[in-house]
Amino acid sequence: MTAATISPPRSPQVPRGQTVLGKLRRQPMTMAAVLFIAMLGLAALLAPVLSPYRPHDTDYFAILQTPSPAHLLGTDDLGRDILSRMLYATRASLLACLQAVGLAVFVGVIIGLLAGYFGGWIDRLLMIVIDSLLAIPGLLLALALVGALGPGLVNASFALSIIFVPVFARITRIQAAAVNQEPYMEASRSIGLTHRRSVLRHLLPNTAAPLIVQIFITLGVAIVAEGAMSYLGMSIQPPEASWGNMLQRSFSTINEAPWLIFIPGALMTLTVLAFQVIGDGLNRSFALDTRSET
């Protein structure tokens, strides 16, 4: 036996279940939420295929029907199939949220990275802008913007993204400023990297964890906010369906068909919940991940 056989080199692979994904897989609640969102996304994508009726088709002989084999979720006051409308509404609402959060992440992360990496007057200037945005109540600002730009899905998403920018800018900035103090950032300067490469290759990946968590939490907030805006008629315009305007419409017939209000309501609640649960689960996995490495 040689000395080498006494302590074999440790395998370079991280033990099973130690990665972030591995840890997520061991959280049943999070996995249920992921499954729910995946199904929702799939339903939205396949809405044209899945829906039994076209979403705008009215049938005046089947108004406010209770669920039946012909209309699985019943019909509304114009005789439109609720299931079909829900599928299209999911598509519209999710799209609006993704647009809003996507734009907010893009702008917020750039602002945050610049502020956190360069510091000094760049940081102060950017943070003054961000702080003044934060000073205005979010939904009020979004409504005012839509008021100025005119209602519609794109404008509503844009308005929402404006109110989400500060969250991402601040989270990125604080994290980037902390990571920027790490010796490997100084080391990257000492080997002569450009700012661009330092930021994109070293700073951004190491700030990503809390950002990813925040993206999911904000998606949940965006669902509610977008719902509120389309409830008020500021976002997607009828006859196009969205969760918010279906909710609004079902209010007018609450005496005749009380169940109608529960369908978009329940779906919104569940979606928000699912996003929050995923955010929490990710947060826990990232936290465990960093602890196991130190």
Binding site: E182, P183, Y184, E186, A187, S188, S190, H202, P205, N206
Partner: peptide, 14 residues
């Protein structure tokens, strides 16, 4: 070039 004090911090963990 420079070699830093903290061998745990000078390499990008990712």
């Amino acid at each position: 070039q420079m070699v830093f004090q903290d061998p745990y911090g000078t390499l990008d963990p990712l």
